[in-house]
Design a protein around this nucleic acid. Structure first.
Length: 554
DNA sequence: AACCCTGCCAACCGCTGCTAT
DNA sequence: AATAGCAGCGGTTGGCAGGGT
C-alpha cells in the first residue's frame, strides 16, 4: 500500500486510471476546479495516487497542498495529501516498531509534554506524530487494562537534572519562561542549541537521523543542517550567587561534543572555507522587544562580526545576504553546504583551535567574498588571539567589500573591561551575530530568519541525550521569517542568565566544544545583576555583554 | 473453523493559528 | 479589523491482522 521514491519507479498514472480506482462518497468539503465541484476520494490511498503525489512533491515541493489536486489530478483534498505525504511518503521515514530507546523517549517526553505529538515527532526523526500518537494510545489502553500506571516508575526516578531540564526546556518552548531559572542551577551536562532548517525546496526534506548520532559531515548535501551554539555554564561565584538555591552543577558545561566530527576532520572539508562562526546571518533586530527577531541570534551571518562600534565585518556572506535577506535555508545546495561547514566548525576543541593557530594550513580558510581582505571569523579569532597573546593592544583594521553595508571599515578593537567577566572582542560570538548599530542597517529591509525548528540538545552527565524542540521559525509556505523562538534564546538572556558565560573559555567552549576540565576550573564569575530573566529588559540587543576574549585563553 | 480480543495502522474530522487580502 | 484560505495538530474512528479460546 505504500509507494515511496525509494521504490525507484514512479508510476505514471493517467487520470483515467485514477478515476477508475475506487472512489468513495464524500469529500474533504468538495473542491471546485473551474468546471464544478469534484468529489474527492477518501479512504486508503492507492499506489497510483501515491505516485502522483510523490511526483507532485518532487516537482513543486511540499506545501500548497490544495494545489495538488489542480496540478496533479489527484482526487484528494489537500489535507489528505499532506497527511499522506507526511506520514507515509516523505523520505527518511522510519518504519517498524519503536525501539526501546524511542519508547522510553516517548514516555519521558509525554510525561513532560503531554499529548504534543507533533513536537515529540520533531524530536524523533523519522517518526510521525501519528505513529507516536498511535503508540501512546495503544500503550494507554494496554496499561490501563493491566492496571499499570501510565508512566513507569523509572520515569519518576529520572534525575532531577533531566526532569527539570526537560521540563524547563519544554516550558520554554511553550512560552512559559517562569521557570527558566531552573535550568542553570540544576543541570549537569551539555546543552546545545540546534537549528534544523525547513526542507530545501523542492529537494527532499530534512529528516535527519537522530540528532545525537549524525555527524555533520554525513548530512545530506542539502535540506538538512544544524546550527549549533553551545555554551559553557559558569561555575564561578556568579553562578553560585545566582543559583545558590539550586543544586550545584559540578562539571556542568555546555558544549558541542556529540554530533559533530572532530576539528581535525575539518581538514577533509577542503571544499569549503571554514569559519568559526559560519552560518546564516541576520542583521540586527530592529525591534529588540520583538520576539520575531530572536532568531537573529542564532543565525549569524557567516563570519559576520558585528562590533561594538556599530560596524560589522563580513568575512563571508551567503548570496542571499547581498539582498539583505536571509539566504533561505531552503535555498541552494551551496547554502546548505555552508551550514554543514558551519556546524562542523563547532566541533573544534580549544586544542583544535590552538592547533589551527599553529597550523592554519590544516584548514582552508578562504573567503569567497569579493574582497580578498575578507577574513573568516576563525581567522579573525586567530589573528586577534595572536595579537593579544603577544601583549600588544592593537586594532585590527580591515576593509571589507561588504555586501550588506557597502564597503566599510571595521575595527576589531580589543577592549578589555576588567570589571566585566564578559569579554569583548571582535570575535564575540554574540556580537557577530547581533549587529549592534541599528543605523548600520536599513531597517525597512526585509530580513529573514532561517525557517526551521530549533532544538535544545541536552546531554546529561549520565550520557543521556535529549532534543527538545524550543520553537520554530518561519514557515515553509511563506518562506519568510516568522520566528517564535522563546526569549531565552536571545543572546542577552543567555548571557545575562548566567548560564553560559563566565569568561573567555566559555566562549571558546561555545565555539569549539568542551574544554579540558582543567581549563574549566578557571572560570570566573559572571556579573551580578544580569543573572536572570530579569536582565532581559536591561540588556537590549544594543547593549549586549561581551562574550569572549581569546587572549584569556592563552 | 469460527469467534473474539487486541494491537496496529491509516485516515478522517474538527479545531486552531497563521497569513494574506 | 474582518474575513478567507491554508497548514498543521490532536482526537477519533475504522479496517486489518494475528493470536487466543
Amino acid at each position: 500500500m505504500s509507494c515511496s521514491e525509494n521504490d525507484g519507479n514512479i508510476l505514471m498514472v493517467s487520470k483515467e486510471q485514477l478515476e477508475s480506482s475506487s472512489t468513495d462518497e464524500g469529500s474533504c468539503s468538495g473542491s471546485s476546479t473551474g468546471g464544478g465541484t469534484v468529489n474527492l476520494k477518501k479512504g486508503p490511498w492507492t499506489t497510483a495516487e501515491d505516485a502522483l503525489l510523490i511526483s507532485y512533491v518532487q516537482k513543486h515541493g511540499e506545501g500548497n497542498w490544495n494545489a495538488v489536486q489542480r496540478h496533479s489530478g489527484l482526487l484528494r483534498c489537500g489535507k489528505s495529501c499532506r497527511l499522506r505525504w507526511a506520514n507515509h511518503l516523505r523520505p527518511h521515514l522510519k518504519k517498524g516498531a519503536f525501539t526501546t530507546e524511542e519508547e522510553q523517549f516517548i514516555i519521558q517526553m509525554h510525561s513532560k509534554m503531554g499529548n504534543r505529538w507533533a513536537r515529540m515527532a520533531a524530536l524523533l526523526p523519522g517518526r510521525t506524530d501519528n505513529e507516536i500518537k498511535n503508540y501512546w494510545n495503544t500503550r494507554v489502553k494496554r496499561r490501563s487494562r493491566a492496571g499499570l500506571p501510565l508512566y513507569p516508575t523509572k520515569v519518576n526516578l529520572q534525575t532531577s537534572d533531566e526532569n527539570q531540564l526537560i521540563q524547563s526546556a519544554t516550558e520554554l518552548s511553550s512560552g512559559n519562561q517562569q521557570n527558566i531559572g531552573i535550568l542553570p542551577g540544576t543541570i549537569n551536562g551539555t546543552l546545545e542549541l540546534r537549528f534544523l532548517p525547513h526542507k530545501a525546496n523542492p529537494g527532499p526534506p530534512p529528516y535527519p537521523p537522530h540528532f545525537s548520532d549524525i555527524p555533520v559531515t554525513a548530512m545530506p548535501s542539502h535540506g538538512l543542517g544544524y546550527y549549533t551554539r553551545s555554551f559553557l555554564n559558569p561555575q564561578g561565584d556568579h553562578a553560585k550567587q545566582t543559583w545558590e538555591s539550586e543544586t550545584s552543577f559540578p562539571g556542568c558545561h555546555f558544549g558541542l561534543n556529540s554530533m559533530v566530527p572532530a576539528f581535525e576532520d575539518l581538514s577533509s572539508l577542503n571544499s569549503e572555507p571554514v569559519y568559526l562562526n559560519s552560518g546564516i546571518g541576520y542583521p540586527h533586530d530592529p525591534d529588540p522587544e520583538s520576539k520575531k527577531n530572536l532568531a537573529s541570534f542564532i543565525c549569524p551571518i557567516p563570519g559576520n562580526h558585528a562590533l561594538s562600534n556599530g560596524n560589522f565585518s563580513s568575512s563571508r556572506l551567503l548570496p542571499g545576504a547581498v539582498k539583505m535577506e536571509l539566504p533561505s535555508l531552503q535555498s541552494t545546495e551551496a547554502d546548505y553546504n555552508d551550514w554543514n561547514t558551519s556546524a562542523s566548525l563547532f566541533t573544534s576543541s580549544y586544542d583544535a583551535v590552538d592547533s589551527y593557530i599553529q597550523s592554519p594550513e590544516n584548514v582552508s580558510v578562504q573567503s569567497d567574498c569579493a574582497s580578498p581582505k575578507n577574513k573568516g571569523l576563525l581567522e579573525d579569532l586567530v589573528q586577534e588571539s595572536k595579537a593579544i597573546s603577544i601583549g600588544k593592544k592593537q586594532s585590527l583594521e580591515k576593509s571589507f567589500d561588504d555586501t550588506m553595508t557597502g564597503s566599510s571599515t571595521v575595527k576589531l578593537e580589543e577592549i578589555r573591561d576588567p570589571t566585566s567577566p564578559f569579554c569583548q572582542s571582535a570575535v564575540s560570538l554574540f556580537n557577530e551575530c547581533n549587529p549592534i548599530n541599528r543605523s548600520t542597517y536599513n531597517e525597512s529591509s526585509t530580513f529573514k530568519a532561517p525557517m526551521g525548528e530549533y532544538f535544545l540538545h541536552l546531554t546529561f552527565s549520565s550520557g543521556t541525550q535529549r532534543d527538545v524542540n524550543v520553537g520554530s521559525a518561519g514557515s515553509a509556505k511563506q518562506d519568510k521569517c516568522a520566528p517564535n523562538l522563546p526569549d531565552f534564546l536571545r543572546p542577552d538572556v543567555l548571557l545575562g542568565s548566567g548560564w553560559f558565560i563566565g569568561n573567555s573559555r566559555s566562549a571558546i567552549d561555545s565555539i569549539s566544544g568542551p574544554l579540558d576540565e582543567n581549563l574549566r576550573e578557571d572560570l570566573v564569575p559572571g556579573p551580578a545583576g544580569i543573572s536572570s530573566m530579569a536582565s532581559l529588559e536591561s540588556y537590549p540587543w544594543t547593549n549586549m555583554p561581551r562574550v569572549c576574549q581569546m587572549s584569556e585563553l592563552q
